[in-house]
Write a protein that binds this DNA or RNA. Sequence first.
DNA 1: AAACGAGGTGACAGGCAGGTGACAGCTGTC
DNA 2: GACAGCTGTCACCTGCCTGTCACCTCGTTT
Lengths: 219, 219
Amino acid sequence: MKVLIAEDDDRLARAVAAGLRRRHMVVDVALNGDDALDRLAATAYDVVVLDRDMPGVHGDEICRRLAADRSASRILMLTAARSVQDRVEGLGLGADDYLPKPFDFSELIARVRALARRPGLPPPGRLGFGDLAVDPERRAVTRAGRKLTLTPKEFAVLEYLLTADGRPVPAEELLLRVWDEAADPFTTTVKTTVGRLRAKLGDPPVIETVRESGYRIGG
Amino acid sequence: MKVLIAEDDDRLARAVAAGLRRRHMVVDVALNGDDALDRLAATAYDVVVLDRDMPGVHGDEICRRLAADRSASRILMLTAARSVQDRVEGLGLGADDYLPKPFDFSELIARVRALARRPGLPPPGRLGFGDLAVDPERRAVTRAGRKLTLTPKEFAVLEYLLTADGRPVPAEELLLRVWDEAADPFTTTVKTTVGRLRAKLGDPPVIETVRESGYRIGG
DNA sequence: AAACGAGGTGACAGGCAGGTGACAGCTGTC
DNA sequence: GACAGCTGTCACCTGCCTGTCACCTCGTTT
């Protein structure tokens, strides 16, 4: 679950990002409108938390462009004013939800989660393949009944591959969706993490490599 | 068990809060309607004791919003008038119970407890995991037959983790549900309390840490 | 068969989430 | 008012994760 926070107030942005990361979301931050557009062009975000008033490109404009592109990202618009007028305007521009500042922190979190859930089918209670079972809610993984202990990154990668449902996932996509913006695209991190994950999952292999195309679960 | 008291009479609110705390409930107080809404947005309360006539947002309005949000909180409505008409109106708005002022103090307590019990599957007479047994009613904890003496906070944390049923509970959630509004989100309190609890529970460990996700019982 | 490039592995180090022990303030009790 | 137990805070410690690097393997290309 990947989220972009477009908000020029540095402190606020950081706080929100930290809160969402705690809920296992992958969060990028853009401190102005141009930066936000760049990131939106580069990555498919599930949810965009969008401050309406930003230096550079205005939030409304970003909203409009996303709508024009038929982006699948859902938009939560933040705004200083709290008039009904604003609300109507915001939603008219294509925002999916709207929150007036000052807002309650946990309400923001709750709304982002609600938006994150919206389109995708309800979060599958269990994921799995063969004798491998993953319970995202409990963060538990078992193989042939044996409990496995995965690190957060390993778990995230496995979860992502399982939801990709047999499609090969390129390392680049994993970097975009499981790592955050700080990830260096020229590193060997993904290779290493997948390697460690494979070692923990044991035999027979679950994750197979499709040359030039990425990793996939099963065959 | 977390309760919000929304009541503009300061003295009454304090008295009720103290009574409920003595019964081991975690109690927040809101002295007006706006404050109540803020708190309701921030925390999932099990029961809301709601004064009908409050400055700011009216109790009826709060009731309506909770119903609209499909909140799981149960509502005990307090009102000055005692006509049957009022009772009907209150329940019509979505309140779960209704108590006319002046009321008998212990009756209020009893009704809150009744509501607190209501939805959750029948109050598990006993909670436990492995050789650990917890009796919420008697506040008794035994490990392998040996009686343990826990402090109130320790007991509350253990009880909450047990009812979470294997799901990892983040420290932040514990802060919200086991501590009251005075809790500072940036402290190390939860860590410390869990540490003390672990020490008392002894070996083998019962509470396991899931990095980035919180604490969980067993697994 | 030599060169090449994609992917795999093991070792290492820094950072950070989480754990601990000591201490002090508060509250309720005798 | 003295005392004891409970809790929150602080400073410090620790061990695990994770990114990086150097090097290896193996299939493909020329």
